[in-house]
Design a protein around this nucleic acid. Structure first.
Lengths: 217, 217
DNA sequence: GTCTATACCGGGATAGAC
DNA sequence: GTCTATCCCGGTATAGAC
């Protein structure tokens, strides 16, 4: 979906807003459920789900509030639509063969690598996912999926420890948490112009596996 | 402020709520601004600021909605009160002498160590701080303070690189981001019964500086 | 597929009695 | 210092015309 950043925000906010493309003046945009979800994901990322009103969405989409209900049943459907790509992206990684075969530590590295890539390609969706609080049914569902994913990572960390591939004198669940924390924090920093996914991957792998300390070697 | 967890949540939520201590039936709790801020911080942590209503707060505090306004001017003041301890805690670290004197990498390690400690002692306040989105003036102020703190860390990482104490073939700002991301992600994992702050510190330092990889050394 | 108009509820906040 | 009652706004969602 092609979008274009609006020049001035007429409303009372210092944030930028997104308008779906079509005619010059931001009305009759010919929206679909998908295009609205994309707009929603951007706003959810900026302001959070609860703080984003249907009025905000309608302004950003260039259609009336009520028109949104022609495409989706309600606000929560927009959230679900925004979260699904992120969750599918994450679980898709686990199905890839390099995540299933080979030494545990290599599988772990592959997952971290791909996680960074998914994060960059699906940035607004992943960002929405990582900021949930569990106030609605949809949020709880998404948090549950995330927990499952995190447990898979933790299990893999433990496997790698048992195989003697990573240090085993620390708690596996905690190490997994820190690893995910480092990876996920990239949403706060990454912009397409700041670095390529490959550079991100290199730095994450460097810190997580080799450490920041300068070694005499 | 002494608090006690409520056994059953009569309202429509799967989350626990907090009631200030005093008589048996949760009324006339003798609240102060401080005790209300503590209650608020817990709720903000669970549900997020926007999703927490004054009605939620009054229920958790055991007083009427309107009674809250006797102690604080409004909802945003509760947020500010909850954020201040976290921000003061973080900036307090930077003033400690081990954060100001010595080799850059040692200063950095001290800050990381203390950051973990502040995070554990001020958990609800720090959690509230880390989940802000910048929708209100208070939130913007807090985010600005956080940015200042993060910049200080980034500068210190760069210093340590220049001194040859940590690897210098990666972007300093990005490395700092990952380090903070790992530390901050502890709020998602830490519970007083799961680990001591000292254990957390050990694991964080291990991963961030030495790396997870098992070294032949 | 979009609009205007509106229903309806819950949000934050205030008034004034006790 | 707490209460009950109330205000007013903005929230999500719906009705029905074009």
């Amino acid at each position: 979906m092609i979008s274009v950043q609006e020049g001035a925000d007429g409303d009372g906010g210092p944030r930028s807003s997104w308008v779906a493309h079509r005619p010059r003046e931001g009305r009759y945009a010919g929206h679909t459920a998908t295009s609205l979800i994309e707009v929603a994901a951007h706003l959810f990322t900026e302001r959070g789900y609860e703080a984003t009103s249907m009025a905000d969405l309608s302004r950003a989409a260039g259609i009336a509030k009520s028109s949104i209900y022609h495409h989706v049943p309600g606000k929560e459907a927009l959230l679900r639509g925004a979260l699904e790509p992120a969750i599918e992206g994450l679980f898709g990684i686990l199905s890839e063969s390099p995540a299933q075969d080979g030494a545990p530590v290599e599988r772990l590295r592959h997952i971290v690598r791909r996680q960074v890539e998914v994060l960059t390609t699906e940035l607004p969706y992943v960002t929405s996912l990582l900021r949930l609080r569990g106030n609605t049914e949809t949020e709880c569902w998404a948090l549950e999926r995330r927990k499952v994913f995190d447990r898979r990572i933790a299990a893999l960390v433990r496997e790698a420890m048992d195989a003697g591939e990573i240090v085993d004198d620390i708690d596996a669940a905690l190490a997994a948490r820190l690893l995910s924390g480092a990876v996920n924090s990239l949403i706060e920093w990454y912009r397409p112009d700041r670095a390529t996914p490959a550079e991100l991957v290199a730095v994450v792998e460097r810190m997580a596996f080799e450490g920041l300390r300068e070694n005499p070697a």
